[in-house]
Amino acid sequence: MKTIAVVDYGMGNLRSVAKAVEHVAPRARTLISSSASEIAAADKVIFPGQGAARDCMAHLRDYDLLASVESAFHNKPFLGICMGLQVLFDSSDENDGIDCLAYVAGKVSRFERDSDLPECKIPHMGWNEVQQQQSGHALWNNISDGARFYFVHSYYVQPKDKSIVSGETDYLGQFCSAIAKDNVFATQFHPEKSAANGLQLLANFSQWQPN
């Protein structure tokens, strides 16, 4: 039986993520874990997160999970969600600048309100469309291009290497809403809160076998 570990480092509710994965992958063993050895032993790792980048990095250190998370995104199918996407980058502008995990070159910036787009509030909250930039990617299987997913965030990622952009969304301009790089896929939106499309993406992750 495959094991999917949802990394628990004290950054918010993980139950929804785990329940959604159990829902689509009943034959996998899904566990919420803050144990480095369990994460190391898992076949796949989901790295969620919400809140602030500073707290996220601090908690990873406090829980002594930096090494196991780094090992996971270098070695096994890895799904980052929301803050779990942002902290993969070099740094975040949040809290006057926070060094992050630097798996992806680039930074994380805050949305700024635009007087020409008064309807664009911050946070970006709700269901928005994701244009698939790597439409052949296994995690987009059976999901239509432009499908809507649930977002809630005030910061967005800016990868230097545009070839890793797997999804784009329009809010105060086009921004990168998903990345794919080797065995890593990470989304700004919340698949666990995105009804059928989100469940499909999680199902795709549970079956994903990156080369």
């Binding site: 918010g12 509710n13 139950r15 929804s16 329940k19 959604a20 829902h23 649930y150 809630v152 919340h190 666990e192 809160k193 995105s194 009804a195 989100g198 469940l199």
Partner: peptide, 25 residues
């Protein structure tokens, strides 16, 4: 699997944490 908001009877941060940990967004 859609976002869930819960209101009513919230008095302190501990109440909020309990609701979020139970699965509220």
């Amino acid at each position: 699997f859609i976002p869930l908001t819960v209101g009513g009877g919230i008095r302190e941060v501990a109440d909020i944490r309990k609701l979020l940990n139970a699965g509220a967004d």
